[in-house]
Nucleic acid binder design. Structure first.
Lengths: 217, 217
DNA sequence: TTGTGAAAGTTATAACTTTCACAAATTGAA
DNA sequence: TTCAATTTGTGAAAGTTATAACTTTCACAA
């Protein structure tokens, strides 16, 4: 099949691709070098044909009768998602969560590189977290301009979130990952904002437990 | 409309309810006491009628011509999701991420109470993080049994994840929130496992940026 | 070289979800 | 009390997504 260039890809497909990527990586680390759609589907809690359909949509990456090659498929999905190139990211708010995020191995796995952190606390400024040095938050704007930063991760206290987002320059910043309790609309000043609620999955589990649902990922 | 007891509620609806809850709370803190479906929809990046339909499905919580009462709606959604009762939760792996999660205010907001943490590092044992004391990981199993713990949050190094999950007693533990890079199937020993990938939203942003999509939350 | 089994790729259909459009209900002002 | 302005709740239509069923292709072994 031809590589899909015209059809609109839904966000649900993209989210599943990230799941495939993760479970394929996980299987690869366990020594597997081929995986079938059935296996991927079981690991992700899906139906096998949706896995095949999702992947076939972007090109025929499998080998009939055999399955998908772990190394190749990883490379292909990385390419689809734009994870094949290193991306510089900055973090604002070097507290517990910010520190944990910079150190979270999952970001490096997908080529996100935290090159700097920003905070108001003078105690923290000048220190390094992982590879990232901590700068005063006043330096954020010029830093973004100078380094052409496109993605900002927000882990400041909720009370400060709005002011920082308002001050981001949409000529540079295209995406914001918001870990604060403030809910931003998905498009803000032409930037994509994704609100992340760590409690969300726990809330979903809570509902599942209460209602004894069997359910997917 | 009668309260829904028969129709199957999809997980997508539940996820949206958690979004509503969050944005309603956020509006409430900003001093609002009524919200219309349109306002909620805009904050969440959705269509207004889906908000109405989602809420109406569980009962008529709105007032025609006026909108939804912030306080009442919060209470209703909390009830639907089973967040109206305090739930004890334990954390395994008291590293950076574990510490950040225990301190994350979003969990307390929805009545999740971290009552203990477990770790292998003798340095950490005996200390407290938030309200939670850190115990040796050997004490996990008896602790779960003694306190009837139903939810476990997993923030250990990936290499240890499998062993800990295998050792959880499904007679007590119903839900696992897995922050490690290991991907577990959604049902493991009759426990609900939710795999959380902090990098996932960044991957989605990456794709959106690459393809200049306009998209929802 | 050919036959066989396995699993990808593909199509058609069923199931589900979202949106539209409007009736019903409520408030507040005239 | 009535009227206008709102906004919910909801049935039907449209649109989308997932599933099942089918066809094709590949690798391997005889």
């Amino acid at each position: 099949m031809e590589l899909n260039t015209t059809t609109k890809i839904s966000e649900a497909v993209i989210r599943r691709l990230t799941d495939y990527l993760r479970c394929i990586r996980c299987a690869g680390e366990a020594g597997r070098d081929m995986l079938t759609s059935l296996e991927i589907s079981e690991r992700c809690g899906l139906n096998a044909s949706i896995v095949r359909k999702d992947l076939a949509q972007f090109g025929a990456y499998g080998v009939k009768g055999m399955g998908y090659n772990v190394r190749d498929l990883t490379r292909q999905i990385n390419k689809i998602l734009g994870l094949d190139k290193l991306k510089d990211v900055v973090l604002v708010g070097a507290g517990h969560l910010g520190t944990a995020i910079i150190r979270y191995p999952g970001f490096a796995d997908v080529n996100f590189n935290f090159i700097a952190a920003f905070d108001t606390d003078p105690e923290k400024i000048g220190k390094t977290i992982g590879q990232a040095e901590v700068y005063p938050v006043e330096d954020l704007k010029p830093f973004i301009r100078k380094h052409g930063i496109q993605i900002v991760v927000l882990t400041v206290p909720s009370s400060e979130a709005q002011a920082i987002v308002n001050d981001l320059d949409p000529d540079y910043v295209k995406g914001v990952l918001n870990f604060t309790a403030v809910v931003f609309p998905p498009k803000q000043n032409n930037m994509f904002v994704h609100n992340i609620d760590l409690a969300k999955e726990l809330e979903v589990i809570s509902y599942c437990m209460k209602n004894c649902l069997s359910q997917g990922s």
